[in-house]
């Protein structure tokens, strides 16, 4: 039993008479501690898959299983708890709370569970020790994304889901973020799923899932993932 399993997952959107399948029989597995990268062109259903995995969206058909639990059958309350306890989400546009400092932003996620990494510690870990009392408006893009990552990590989730984390960042900052993610995965044994349209970074992943036309067209296992510093694009 894989850590994360998607089997024949369908997600349909009805727009008038037209039906759009965001996920059209999606099937793939991901093992624990893997750094999985989901690549595909725009509109291929990558974000849909991530949302479904993150418990923010429901599927119409199919099985979604995370650590043995059937996520597709969860009701709202269960989904809320699932999101709170099991998932760490990193968004493309950071989604930090503007009223709260970096520290508080991390705390807000962490205070939801008993077992968490203290905010200051995790912020230091991501290299924002001096910026813990700054508001997101006072931080740069990279710093904000790092806060976001810290937020996700402090929860000690089972699954770390990243939706184009470097989308809004420049090359170097992006690289730095990716490195962080990779290190977390390796060091802490966290299962990281990364969604991107940038095929250049696929070498860093342990598993590459290619999505095409709302289905997993190719799953490639990488025995020797390349460290991020070495990848140029």
């Amino acid at each position: 039993m894989a850590f994360v399993t998607l089997k024949d997952v369908y997600k349909r959107y009805h727009v008038g008479e037209v039906t759009i399948n965001a996920a059209d029989g999606m099937t793939f597995d991901i093992e624990k501690g893997e750094l999985a990268v989901i690549v595909g062109p725009s509109g291929s259903g990558k974000t849909t898959v991530l949302n479904m995995l993150g418990g923010m969206d429901s599927c119409d058909e199919g099985i979604i299983s995370v650590d043995g639990a059937r996520v597709d059958g969860y009701n709202r309350k269960q989904l809320t708890l699932y999101r709170r306890y099991d998932i760490g989400f990193i968004f493309q546009f950071y989604n930090l709370l503007p009223n709260l400092t970096a520290k508080e932003n991390v705390e807000i996620a962490a205070q939801t569970k008993r077992d968490y990494i203290p905010a200051v510690e995790i912020l230091e870990k991501v290299g924002l020790g001096e910026r813990i009392n700054n508001f997101p408006a006072q931080l740069s893009g990279g710093e904000q994304q790092r806060v976001s990552i810290a937020r996700a990590l402090s929860k000690k989730p089972k699954l770390l889901l990243c939706d184009e984390p470097t989308g809004a960042l420049d090359y170097n900052t992006g690289k730095m973020i990716l490195k962080l993610l990779q290190d977390t995965c390796r060091r802490d044994g966290m299962t990281v799923i990364l969604v991107t349209h940038n095929t250049a970074i696929t070498p860093m992943a342990d598993r590459v899932i290619k999505i095409k036309n709302s289905r997993a067209s190719e799953i490639i296992l990488n025995d020797n993932p390349t460290p991020v510093e070495q990848i140029e694009w």
Partner: peptide, 10 residues
């Protein structure tokens, strides 16, 4: 923000 919160499981 709300979306973020919900994502965080609030």
């Amino acid at each position: 923000q709300i979306g973020t919160h919900k994502a965080l499981g609030t």
